[in-house]
Design a protein around this nucleic acid. Structure first.
Length: 399
DNA sequence: AATACGGGGAT
DNA sequence: ATCCCAGTATT
């Protein structure tokens, strides 16, 4: 064997056993993350020691595609309303939806409720620790199952969310297409989870990886100077930190027109239920007309108002105003009208007149809550003098 | 492999 | 204005 050939062979061997250097690198990465997380972890209400399985499950559902700051706003009231898994499992779905109001992706509330009922009945009210059992629960996918298994039960399961994917792609300098990036990240996260589990606490490693992505290795303007991985980050050393990960293909935003008719009777407002599928499924709203490319004409609103208060003289309509409600791939334009129903009016079948005090028992989207507020301000201005002087300066601008 | 599904934060 | 967020279920 010539010296040259011998050198190639040993180089190939060393790189496959790959082991050598890459295993040491992986162990180093795990160690740095765990060490950093012990002092950098944000105090969050579900980060209790030891982890509470129910609170962890609840937080994971709420945090699906939802930022920590938003979950923190809704967390106290939800936990106070449903302190234990049993409370949640025995609740009516509508009460769960009401407590979820404003969080978005309302299907999660129904799935969480279903999961809690299944855990209550099939698992004796204990959140399961096995990946397969977890995955069988409604609303629990690969990420959530891995999070519960590893963070709550210290099982060697990987998790990949948007944070983990970004951190791993960057530290390893992988400029992959979105689909390949996701597959690669799961493989890499699995390898690292096994190492972290063998060395220390895989839960702290997984949680630390997410925390790093959420607080340091952010999508834009990452704070590399504070990053525990800065000296080993290949995206940074090759100047590609702003190109990795590649941006996802974005879908064009479509515009929807909603004309809402807010019927009030004394201090009560008429609400109806949305259909069980589609946007804002199963939530409550004021009766609304959703038309293609335009708001409803006043004659169409008037016809609807007569249906809602049959037998009464035609209600006087007040155009309260318009606003835009922006979501990721939709712009919802609202036009809000107000009408007063006579005290004798009865709510049509399936609808309810709801007093402001009991509003919190009804699941309402933020958009429809805003429509109700707009109508209330407008009718207060146009209505009784006693109500008119309570308007805020902001309300005055809407006249 | 795409698409539907909220609402808001950060830049 | 643009991108993204502790994703999952359905098509």
């Amino acid at each position: 064997m010539t010296p040259a050939r011998s050198a190639r062979a040993s180089a190939a061997g060393a790189s496959r056993a790959g082991s050598g250097r890459s295993a040491a690198r992986a162990a180093d990465l795990c160690r740095r993350i765990a060490s950093w997380f012990t002092h950098a972890a944000r105090p969050l209400p579900w980060r209790v020691t030891p982890r509470d399985p129910y609170l962890s499950l609840l937080s994971e559902f709420m945090l699906q595609q939802t930022q920590v700051a938003r979950v923190l706003q809704k967390w106290p009231a939800f936990v106070a309303r449903f302190p234990t898994l049993r409370d949640l499992a025995e609740a009516d779905e509508q009460d769960v939806l009401a407590a979820w109001s404003g969080l978005g992706y309302y299907r999660r509330a129904r799935l969480l409720h279903g999961a809690s009922r299944e855990i209550f009945s099939r698992y004796a009210a204990r959140v399961p620790c096995g990946l397969a059992d977890l995955r069988s629960l409604p609303g629990v996918g690969r990420y959530t199952a891995g999070a519960i298994a590893s963070i709550v039960y210290s099982r060697p399961a990987p998790i990949v969310d948007g944070n983990v994917r970004r951190v791993l792609l960057r530290v390893e300098g992988r400029d992959l297409s979105p689909a390949s990036a996701d597959r690669w990240a799961w493989v890499r996260a699995d390898e690292l989870a096994q190492i972290a589990h063998a060395r220390a606490d895989v839960g702290a490693f997984n949680e630390g990886l997410m925390e790093l992505g959420a607080t340091i290795c952010t999508p834009r303007a990452p704070r590399c100077a504070e990053c525990p991985l800065r000296s080993m980050c290949r995206a940074r050393s090759s100047g590609r930190i702003n190109r990795i990960p590649r941006p996802a293909r974005r879908v064009p935003v479509q515009t929807i027109h909603v004309t809402s008719l807010v019927m009030t009777k004394a201090d009560q407002v008429l609400l109806c239920r949305r259909p069980p599928t589609g946007l804002w499924a199963d939530l409550w709203q004021p009766p609304s007309l959703e038309l293609d490319g335009r708001f409803a004409r006043e004659s169409e609103i008037a016809a609807r108002a007569r249906e809602l208060a049959p037998g009464a003289p035609p209600p006087r309509l007040l155009r309260a105003g318009t606003f835009d409600h922006q979501t990721t791939h939709r712009r919802v334009r609202f036009e809000v009208w107000h009408a007063s129903a006579p005290a004798s009016a009865r709510a049509p079948r399936g609808m309810r007149y709801v007093a402001s005090g009991e509003r919190s028992a009804f699941g309402l989207s933020n958009a429809h809550a805003r429509a109700l507020a707009l109508a209330a301000r407008a009718s207060a201005v146009q209505g009784t003098p006693s109500a008119a002087h309570t308007q805020t300066p902001k309300a005055r601008r809407h006249r």
